[in-house]
């Protein structure tokens, strides 16, 4: 599904690479935790998959496609196959829950009939049935993150990228979010989640990729947060 082939990424302003010689293969349907301290290269890793960045050396392949070679006009098509969730939810404040989720389908030109069907379905999946007319500020943090996940998932993407999705949530709420991500993963969606939350990683026992100063220092199946 996703292949990093000897990937090095330099930022223009810096001498030290944000990622250096990273080799990793993530298969379809995997659940992967990306751990490491701030500045270890987690965000760079995710942004390379989204094709917000291109590699300095090496290749990133998603679904067999070399991202450096896709035409800039085709990048939106690429992003439609990837759902993204952030720590800060990134919902539109003036729009209701329904509208926020529908927005993701509207802007890629999906027909209204499909939107009418998919939005309630997805809200049910994330456990927000009956809250479609609420505004984001009327919801708790956990609920807001569920809306963001619904928006990322409504288009049935092959990959879900979550950058610290529980970073702003209390432990109990985080567990709920993780259950939801796990459920989404079980439908066949590849999930890549960057996190600092050791409890979650240790509980879930999924594959762990650890980055340190741009180097991939650990790739462990059923791993834990801290190196043993």
């Amino acid at each position: 599904m996703i292949t990093f082939d000897n990937v090095t990424k330099f930022y223009d302003s810096q001498q030290v690479p944000a990622l250096s010689n990273v080799n990793v293969q993530i298969d379809k349907g995997e659940f992967v935790f990306l751990v490491g301290s701030s500045g270890s290269g987690k965000s760079t890793f995710l942004r390379l998959i989204l094709r917000e960045l291109v590699t300095s050396r090496g290749q990133v392949l998603v679904a067999g496609r070399d991202l450096a070679r896709i035409h800039p006009w085709k990048i939106p098509q690429h992003r439609r196959r990837i759902g993204t969730v952030f720590q800060d939810f990134r919902l539109l404040p003036g729009k209701s829950v329904n509208e926020n989720v529908a927005f993701a389908l509207q802007v890629i030109g999906r027909p209204t009939s499909e939107i009418r069907r998919r939005v309630p379905e997805t809200l049910q999946t994330v456990g927000l049935t009956g809250k479609g007319d609420r505004l984001p500020e009327e919801l708790s943090g956990g609920e807001q993150q569920r809306v963001a996940i619904a928006r990322a998932f409504v288009n049935d993407p092959a990959i879900l990228i979550a950058d610290e999705p529980t970073g702003n949530l209390d432990p109990a709420t985080s567990v709920g979010i993780m259950k939801l991500l796990d459920r989404i993963n079980r439908t066949g969606t590849t999930v890549i989640m960057a996190t600092h939350d050791s409890t979650i990683v240790d509980q879930m026992r999924r594959r762990v990729l650890e980055l340190d100063k741009g180097l991939l220092v650990r790739d462990q199946t059923k791993g834990v947060y801290g190196a043993s």
């Binding site: 098509q77 990134r90 993701a104 288009n155």
Partner: peptide
């Protein structure tokens, strides 16, 4: 904000 989300979910540049 909206533009950022549009790009994130893959809205085309034309759109």
């Amino acid at each position: 904000r909206e533009l950022g989300i549009m790009r994130m979910v893959g809205a085309s540049n034309t759109y």
